[in-house]
Amino acid sequence: MKSVKAHLALILPLFAILFGAEYLIVFDRIVDNYETKLSAEYSLIVVADKALKPVDISRVDRLIDHVEPVDIDSILHRIRKETSEKNMKKIKSIMPSFYSVKLRHYPDKYTLKRLKEELLAIKGVKSVYLFEKMHDPLYEMLAFMKSNFLIFSLLMFVVGVLLILKQMYVWQLEHRERMQIMALFGAPVWLRSGVLFRLAIIDAFIALLLIVSGMFYLMKRSDLVAFLRDIDIDPQTLFHFNDIGLLAAIGFGISIFGTLVVVIRFKEEL
């Protein structure tokens, strides 16, 4: 029973840290997905009263991926039948130039506002129009949750590491006598601290197993999958196999680091 408690004292903080890390990864992925979707569903049009070089427009901000002139003929195509050739030429001559601006990623409201101001500052630009699906409230909420979760995860990380270190010290006290005796006979650090490393690695593995099974369980829950689809989130974003590697690196890294801290601070007291 005592041994189970000792293991839980390490497994639970590790699980909390991994849980925080995994949620952060998931939120990041969801927000990224949303940004990709949004960036495919907007249209930023620059209207100029004279012809501009696309490169002059794209130069104003690094956010701009590329600029394409909009073909006026395609705009006038609908009225071509009802309009004479002479009038068409006249219309064409007074028509402003249109440019479609494509961005590298979809920015927040404030960046968009700044970009519009930068574009309007180009000589010859009359107006800038943004046709968007609209800044989705869900996206805003996800972005807000992501930033909050980052703070929460960091706090969880700090508290978790402190609890892990505390547990390592408890283990060291339990094993101190043996470590002292082994040191007396010249045992190298890795041998006399072997049991601490072994316990840390086993517990990190158990915490990893718990978090991965938990995520698989959530992925298989049909009600959760349906809910995610309802709010336009791909359920596949919930867990990727790559996450296992990242979580393993975090879990094993923290527990081995904790053990090293305790081992380095070991002092002989014979």
Binding site: R178, Q180, M182, G186, A187
Partner: peptide, 28 residues
């Protein structure tokens, strides 16, 4: 530590490892 691997030490309070068997203690 290398030097200690060639020295044998005996204490008044024995300093045996409690959770190890007698045989394993001698094997240390």
């Amino acid at each position: 530590y290398k030097l200690r691997r060639h020295i044998g030490v005996i204490f008044q309070d024995y300093k045996l490892i409690g959770e190890w068997s007698v045989e394993k203690n001698v094997m240390l």
